[in-house]
Write a protein that binds this DNA or RNA. Structure first.
Lengths: 188, 188
DNA sequence: AAGTTAGTATACCGATCGGTATATTACTAA
DNA sequence: TTAGTAATATACCGATCGGTATACTAACTT
């Protein structure tokens, strides 16, 4: 099983640096010190390798967000918790999150976009659900859950992108800014 | 010259839909109804074709932003003008902006990222310059021009992405939200 | 001990990749 | 009229693409 994990590690490395389409199977197996049939034994195809990568990391990311998104009646607090949880996850999984962001923004007919899309839907459902519940306490939010979920994550990803470019740190100030900027957009 | 423009049109179509790496030269020339040597006569290489595409559209985008970013002492007004100008440009160049966004978020060692990077630097300089000038009137903004330029454009692109997914329209409400959300992040 | 299975390598597949050598046509400049 | 140039096509290049047929080995199962 050591080979399998090594392939995943090398693939994440290369995909995040050069993009899915920019990396060949040959390059992956060479860097992993194995041969093609070994890779195909574990993952079946290049697409299968990508899906395994996503499954491995995104399931944890999803759990992290879902756990932080439990609504207890205090929406700003919940949003702060989500933002902090995502920032921690990003800090611990820089390469994956870089690849994830590039996949989210990749072309709609490309393999990477198709691979990440269904996972994203689940993620957005968690946030939409949060805003739906909160809308019972904030009447002016109704029927805007989808837009809120999207712009909230977008705000977070703005700061994450700055972090990935080494322009800022993901500290409490960044959490505060992301949450309050977004809040201003919903409450007014 | 009709062929050259047709190649650019077809290439933008395919690149924006399937990504630069996901489109072959053969596919472009077939869809354009020509052959390879014609394409290579005009653009020299696949990369050259991409650069021509960027040059053609980005120079107009840059002008649009630069014109709107002239600072007259009223920062909220200037930001509103920039946001409106970008929204208009996006409405008129959906495919290009889709491709542009995907290039901005593509992997750092990929060709698309390298191709768009130097243009982005110029664009950000325009915004940094605006915030630098405005900081004389708002003391607490000093030395944060880079972060402001980035998060301001990020905010705009959040709404643009919602628009490209047909979730919202780029109307005055969207302009108001983008500007005021961002302002709340700077002034507080 | 015999059969089965997982894991791995060598060597190969057809298809497609970006790119080009050569030739031809059509127009332009002298 | 002639020389040169821009624009195009046919046919091809070596390299790389994702993927596999075959065989071997080692371990586990019965």
């Amino acid at each position: 099983m050591e080979n399998k994990e090594n392939i995943l590690k090398v693939a994440l490395d290369l995909f995040s640096a050069k993009g899915y389409d920019g990396v060949g199977i040959q390059e992956i197996v060479e860097k992993a010190g194995i041969t093609k049939p070994t890779l195909y034994h574990y993952f079946g195809s290049k697409r299968g390798l990508l899906e395994s990568l996503i499954e491995q990391y995104f399931s944890r990311f999803y759990d992290v967000v879902k756990t932080a998104a439990i609504y207890t009646g205090d929406l700003p607090l919940t949003m702060t918790n989500i933002t902090r949880a995502i920032f921690v996850f990003v800090s611990e999984n820089r390469d994956f999150y870089r690849m994830y962001l590039s996949m989210c923004f990749s072309s709609p007919d490309s393999e990477p976009y198709a691979a990440i899309h269904k996972y994203n839907i689940d993620l957005y459902l968690v946030l939409e659900d949060l805003f739906r519940k909160a809308s019972k306490d904030h009447g002016n939010m109704r029927n805007r859950q989808k837009r809120y979920a999207f712009t909230f994550l977008g705000m977070i990803n703005n700061y994450v992108t700055l972090y990935l470019g080494n322009f800022i740190e993901l500290n409490d100030e960044a959490i505060f800014l992301a949450v309050h900027q977004f809040s201003h957009g919903i409450y007014s």
